[in-house]
Structures are given as structure tokens and as C-alpha cells.
Design a protein around this nucleic acid. Sequence first.
DNA 1: AATGCATGCTAAGTCTGTCAAGCACTAACT
DNA 2: AGTTAGTGCTTGACAGACTTAGCATGCATT
Lengths: 126, 126
Amino acid sequence: MTDGETDQNVRPTNLGQIIKKARTDLQMSQRDVEEATGKEISNAYLSQLESGKITKPSPHILYALSTVLAVPYETLMERAGYIVPSAQRPADVKHGRAATFAVDNLTADEEAALLDYLAYLRTKKG
Amino acid sequence: MTDGETDQNVRPTNLGQIIKKARTDLQMSQRDVEEATGKEISNAYLSQLESGKITKPSPHILYALSTVLAVPYETLMERAGYIVPSAQRPADVKHGRAATFAVDNLTADEEAALLDYLAYLRTKKG
DNA sequence: AATGCATGCTAAGTCTGTCAAGCACTAACT
DNA sequence: AGTTAGTGCTTGACAGACTTAGCATGCATT
């Protein structure tokens, strides 16, 4: 079919690319992430992760990233080549795209502004 | 005292002890395990694992052990100090204000719009 | 121009998991 | 005794994750 269909066999998005996309989607710099993780992950290390120089970071690193970047932990584990406990939940990503919305990182002001804006959007389209 | 039998009833809590008990329960030698894993885990390494010299083996090592020794993968992961994916969902502790944000109900369009708007907000205030 | 700051990235080092080889001990068997 | 085989354990080296300090560019302000 035209384009846009996903070829499961091909894996163009490796761990680093996933992380980078999640981060840039949130408009965060590498140092922002470093801060958000409480210095748990240095910006230098992040750079190496995103550039693919490091392919198998420790799970606790992946966990920190998953919370900050709002990407499911299991996804990162899987992309890092780890076996995920057989409690495989394919449907865990029920809202896929919405999960990329890092609500965790919103300041109170930002959240308020976004809620206002969302309300505005919805009144507009009915 | 006077417990003529060794205290095997006590469930070991350390990773090394868990592995060792599982192995000896199965009457396997360290080299047996090495064989059973298809040389994936050397007997030398096993020795260090059981003696506690190595505390955080890679998940794929734990997985191999879990299958050979018939110990649940999650148990080993947990004992190695890794966060187990399934333990992630119930908590979701830190939200607080995030809960007020109905992310789950966002449509893809809305999310995109909000992300844009958030980017705009952040460029504004730096 | 120059100063400052933010961003991404690299260089060089440390730490630790992991392996291969070999050591030390025991139990059997000739 | 001597050897053979089985056990757990140690040692030395390597690889890769991870850190710290610093570089290079870009973008803005003075």
C-alpha cells in the first residue's frame, strides 16, 4: 500500500533514535533531561545513547528515561535487546501517541495553560 | 537450636544464594549449568555470581538461568535490583497534577496541537 | 567584534560484568 | 603412590557501560 505502512521486519528506529525523538518531541535539551533525571543521566551519556554509541544501557537507566520521556519502560527494554518478562502486554500502548505526551514534566503553569488551550480547541470544533 | 535440620526453610534473598539453592536443589554442578545453558554462562562466572562477587548480571544472563534453574525470570530480575516492568503500572506514583490532565482522552490531533502549543510556550519563557 | 550562554558532541578515563585458563581440593580407581 | 575425573574457586585480561572535563558551533546581546 502506498506509504506509511510499517514493515515489522525492518527496524529503522533503534534505541537511540527512539530516545532522541521522544526528547525532541518534548522540546527538551539533553541537559534538560539530565536535570529531569536528577543528574542520574548525564548529557554526555545521553548523547552517546542517542548516537548509538551505547546500545545496551542498564535497565535502571532505561527506567529513568521512560519516566522522564514518557515512553513505556518495556519498549525501551525491548529495544535495548533485553528479554521482557513474558507478561507481554501488546496492548499496553493503548493510546500510543498520547503516551508520548510527558505530562510529568509540565509545570503547574504550563498545565494550566494547556488545559485552557485544550478547552478552547474543543469549544471550537464542537 | 536443636533444629537438627539445616535451615533450608528460609528463603534466600540474595541473588547469589537464590541461584545456588536452585542449582543444588536440582543436583546440578556449576559445570552442569554451564552445559545446560549451552556455554552461555561459564562455570567460573557462575561461581562469582553465587558468591556474590557479581551483583548485577545482565538480564539475558538472568533469563538463561531462569530457564535452566526453573526460577521465574522476574524473581531474578528483582533480586538483581532491576525494576520489573509489571511493577510499573499500578504505582505511577508521582503524578498528582498529571491526574487532572486527561491525556487519555486526547485525540491525535489534539495532542499534536497541544505539543505545538507547549513548544510555543517554552520558547516564550525560555 | 566580543562576550556570554546554550546545545550537542568528543576524549580519556574508571568501573564492572564477562570470559578463558588454570589452581586447589576431593574421591575414586589401577 | 599416581592418575584421572569432578567439584568450586581465583586470576588476568578484555569489552562495554558510564563519568567528568572540555571542545566547537550557533545564537543572542552589548
